[in-house]
Structures are given as C-alpha cells and as structure tokens.
C-alpha cells in the first residue's frame, strides 16, 4: 500500500472519528445515546440541505451539529429529567430520526451540492510519506485530528475531564463531593451529540458527498460498536475507526478479484468487537492487565461503571 491509499483511509474514517469520539464523550459521562444511526442520518440531511440552500459548507456543518445536539438533548431530557430508560429513548429516536431524514430530505436527493474543499497545510505537507497521508487533506480531517488529541487530553489530563470521568463512574460519590452531576451530564450528552452530528454532516459534505435516503449505511451502529471496541478511550477509539477505514478500502480494492469477500468485509468490525470483548472479559486477561497502570487501562477498556443509569439525588 502506498501513501495515497493511507490518505484515503484517513479521509474515509473522518466522519466515524467525529461520531465515535462524540459518543465516547457522552458515555464517559454515564449517558448512553443509542440514537446514533438515526441522528447521524438526520444531521447528514440537514447539513447537506442547509449547505445546498445557503451555499455555505460551514453553515451546513453547524446545522448538522445542532441537529444531533437536539436529538441528544431529548435523550438526556428523557433519561435525566423524566427518568425514562435511556435505551428505549435512544432506540425510538433512531427510528424516528431515520424516517424524518427521509421525509424532509426528499427534495435534496442526489442533487449536486457544495462540499468541503481540500486545503494542504504548508510545510507539513512536504514531510515525506506522512505529509501526503496526514496533511494534504481538508480542514474537517485536520479538525478530527484535533478532536482526537483534545478529547484525550481533556478526559485524562484536565481537572474538568476528571469530573467527567467521575460522574460516569460513581455519580453519587461525585455528587457528594459537590460536582453537579446532572447538569454536567446534560452538557456532555449534548456536546457529544453535536460531534455525532458533525460526523453525519461530514458524510454528506465530504466523505460521501450528497444526500440520498439511508445515506450513511449503518455507520451510526458502527460508531457505537467502535466506542466499545475502543474501550471508551479516545486514542483506541480512533485506532478502531482507522482500522475500520482500512478494512473498507481493502474490501474496495478486492472488489474486482474477490467480489464475495468484498461484500462481506464491511461487517468485520462487529465480530471483531464481540471477540475483543469476550477476550478482554476472560479472567486471565483481566488479571493480567490489572498489573499495568495507564497501558492496562488502555487495553482493558472498561465501561464507565454507571453507564446508562439515571442518577437521582433524592
């Protein structure tokens, strides 16, 4: 494989990075937003529709973020304020948002529209090999790099990130220490949702330009699976996204020679995720990784303990 292939992998994984990291942020706070497959679709649609109507890609991306932010807010409101099961709300919203994207996106189907323009970074683009892979891309791709690094740094190396982990891990203890658990959960759910939306819009305005029904082809579920595969750790989640991107490209390249396998390869992340989980849950592996600090945490990748549970102070 040459640098150009790697560049394509990086570019094609970008929307997934946004969605999976966004969901990682949400789940770190202890909220599970299961609506990804629907809300990404809806954001892909609104993002494209706004960009198409206004001619502004930036506005389109913002609209995509806002859309999934609103969907995420419904999940948070249902799960936190109304105390309804987050899984139920997420699944219903998946269905609803999917259908809504088809309904409202009808007039934009298969129309040529604006897209994110390539912008090589001066100096960096000339780095041999890596320059072509990483720095002859578009601003969205650069932003995804930034998001990986900043989310990692924020979660594991800042005070507020510590609070974020705390509310997903032991909300009652965090609350007793004076951290406003539910307000923060609202914030991170909506923030994570906004990145999910950016992932959706990144499809229709960049990775798979344009809009059609079911445009993002199960990428929402894939993003959810990658969060687990990535052990709720931004770096490993990102690794999973690129790995998936690579599998996709390999599948594409095999299309002419091995058409059967090429059709089936896109499902590879799921068995991979399941086997990874089963492997990591084995007692031997658990006790082995316990011996290492940060690296062990990266490998073990345990879910936030209070994931999906409502916290009621009274």
């Amino acid at each position: 494989m040459n640098a150009a292939t790697f560049a394509i992998i990086v570019a094609s994984a970008t929307p997934l990075i946004f969605a999976a990291i966004g969901e990682t942020i949400t789940e770190k706070a202890g909220v599970v937003n299961l609506s990804l497959d629907g809300s990404m679709l809806l954001s892909a649609m609104t993002g494209f529709a706004i960009a198409y109507t206004t001619g502004s890609v930036e506005l389109g991306l913002l609209a995509g973020m806002a859309t999934s932010g609103v969907v995420a807010f419904v999940v948070a409101f249902g799960g936190i304020r109304l105390r309804v099961n987050q899984i139920a709300v997420g699944l219903i919203l998946t269905y609803f948002a999917t259908k809504l994207s088809a309904l409202l996106g009808g007039e934009f189907v298969r129309k040529p529209g604006p897209s994110v323009q390539k912008m090589s970074l001066p100096v960096l683009e000339d780095i041999p090999f890596f320059g072509e892979i990483l720095f002859q891309q578009n601003p969205l791709v650069y932003f995804s790099f930034l998001l990986i690094i900043v989310s990692f740094w924020w979660i594991f190396h800042t005070r507020r990130g510590l609070d974020l982990q705390a509310i997903g891990e032991r909300p009652e203890a965090a609350f007793a220490r004076g951290i406003p658990v539910n307000s923060l959960r609202y914030f991170y759910t909506v923030l994570g949702g906004a990145f999910v939306g950016l992932g959706g819009a990144a499809f229709s305005l960049d990775a798979k330009m344009g809009w059609s029904e079911g445009h993002i082809a199960n990428y929402g579920w894939i993003a959810l699976a990658l969060v687990i595969f990535g052990g709720w750790h931004p770096l490993r989640v990102a690794f999973g996204c690129y790995l998936f991107g690579a599998i996709q490209i390999v599948a594409l390249k095999m299309q002419p020679t091995l058409p059967d396998l090429a059709q089936v390869l896109p499902i590879a992340p799921f068995p991979l995720m399941i086997l990874t989980l089963v492997f990591l849950n084995m007692r031997v592996v658990q006790s082995f990784t316990m011996r290492f600090g940060g690296i062990g945490r990266l490998i073990r990748g345990t879910a936030p303990s209070a994931l999906g549970e409502s916290f009621w102070p009274d």
């Binding site: 419904v74 249902g78 109304l82 105390r83 309804v84 099961n85 139920a88 709300v89 219903i92 919203l93 269905y95 609803f96 948002a97 999917t98 259908k99 809504l100 994207s101 088809a102 309904l103 009808g106 029904e213």
Partner: peptide, 26 residues
C-alpha cells in the same frame, strides 16, 4: 407524499407515549 411519513408518525406516537408514561411512572 413521501413514504417515510408513516414512519415519522409512528415514531412521534411511540416517543411521546414512552416519555410521558415513563415520567408518570417515575
């Protein structure tokens, strides 16, 4: 009309009932 209209109505119905009844039960 678009064929997804029915799905949207189904979604609205289930979402409002699950949210409201969940709140009442809580």
């Amino acid at each position: 009309l678009h064929s997804a209209l029915g799905g949207v109505i189904q979604g609205v119905l289930v979402l409002s009932i699950v949210l409201v009844m969940g709140y009442q039960e809580g």
